[in-house]
């Protein structure tokens, strides 16, 4: 049986007339690194805020560690087990780096002094600097330090690498994987950087217009999808309707590019039945899957 650290069912949330979540179903397995993808305004931050108890769902349910997020009493205990990085990386403007670390530490009994010191050095954070004097990248690093040193069972990270330079992104991603591997921490992070997600996530969910359109193990999803390239001599021979499993078809001259999500052998068979057609199969990248789905949705 798989344990889910985060579970939502038919989660709906609207702001005035605008629906942000329309029946979102999300399941994040324990110990996974879950990449939460979507376009701007797709509902990622609304989902994260709902999970953190900052927003209340209009309908549907959400549970973290098996506890309903709407339960104010239990949410305090739940938050003790969560490390959180907010989208805008804002911290108290009147504190210095060392003051905010000293402020945060006592709230978390499993605080990791070793990680705190390690990240202070790795991220080259100046302890005496006031937070408004830090660059956005440095504030992101400080927020990551505050989230990852909590000794949390779950890290919820909203665009964690936003504002970081490529070298720092590399360091942060390596550390996230190391933390997940060494302590079994579940990681749920949203990102626009598909390459990052491809690099570290083992599970993904793609949200669009408030609904989950693809979810599951990244390996399974990648194995399920294939791109077929069909070169044919005569356009008249192309089928009017492709077999079930074809997600999209793009034609450029005498070349047809097909993205198929299942029933691939039947699609290949259909392509080969075109007189003179040459069919090749290619693995697909996460970027292709993402773009195909959000465009077609």
């Amino acid at each position: 049986m798989t344990d889910f650290i985060i579970e939502t069912s038919q989660l709906c949330k609207s702001f005035k007339d605008k629906a942000a979540l329309r029946g979102l179903d999300l399941r994040v397995p324990a110990g996974s690194i879950f990449g939460f993808l979507g376009r701007n305004g797709a509902g990622k931050t609304t989902t994260i805020k709902t999970l953190m108890g900052l927003l209340r769902a209009d309908s549907g349910g959400a549970r973290v560690f098996g506890n309903p997020v709407a339960d104010a009493d239990r949410s305090v205990e739940v938050r003790r087990r969560i490390g959180f990085v907010t989208e805008d990386k804002e911290l108290y403007p009147y504190m210095t780096v060392e003051q905010i670390i000293r402020f945060t530490r006592p709230f978390f009994p499993k605080w990791r002094d070793d990680l705190e010191q390690r990240y202070l050095q790795m991220f080259e954070l100046p302890p005496k600097h006031k937070i408004p004097h830090l660059s956005k990248g440095m504030r992101s690093k400080l927020m990551l330090l505050l989230a990852m040193s909590r000794g949390a069972d779950l890290l919820i990270l909203d665009e964690p690498t936003d504002g970081l330079d490529p070298a720092a992104i590399e360091d942060v991603l390596r550390e996230l994987v190391a933390v997940a591997a060494s302590s079994g921490t579940t990681m749920f992070f949203s990102s626009h950087q598909l390459a990052e997600v491809d690099l570290i996530a083992d599970h993904i969910g793609i949200i669009d217009q408030g609904k989950m359109i693809v979810a599951g193990s990244l390996d399974d999803i990648k194995a399920r999808y294939q791109r077929l390239q069909v070169v044919f001599p005569d356009p008249a021979g192309l089928p009017a309707r492709w077999a079930d499993g074809v997600e999209s078809v793009r034609q450029e001259g005498r070349v047809v590019s097909i993205l198929a999500s299942h029933n691939i052998d039947a699609v290949v068979e259909q392509a080969r039945s075109i007189p003179g057609a040459v069919v090749e199969r290619f693995p697909v990248t996460l970027k292709e899957i993402f773009l195909e789905h959000v465009r077609s949705n």
């Binding site: 900052l54 969560i82 804002e90 108290y92």
Partner: peptide, 26 residues
């Protein structure tokens, strides 16, 4: 919500979300 030292802020200061992520009741 977070209140910067002297000047009044318009809207919600972003760091309020950090406060609300702490294991402390409202």
């Amino acid at each position: 919500v977070t209140q910067p030292s002297l000047q009044a802020t318009k809207g919600l200061h972003g760091s309020t979300l950090f406060t609300l992520s702490l294991p402390v009741s409202r």
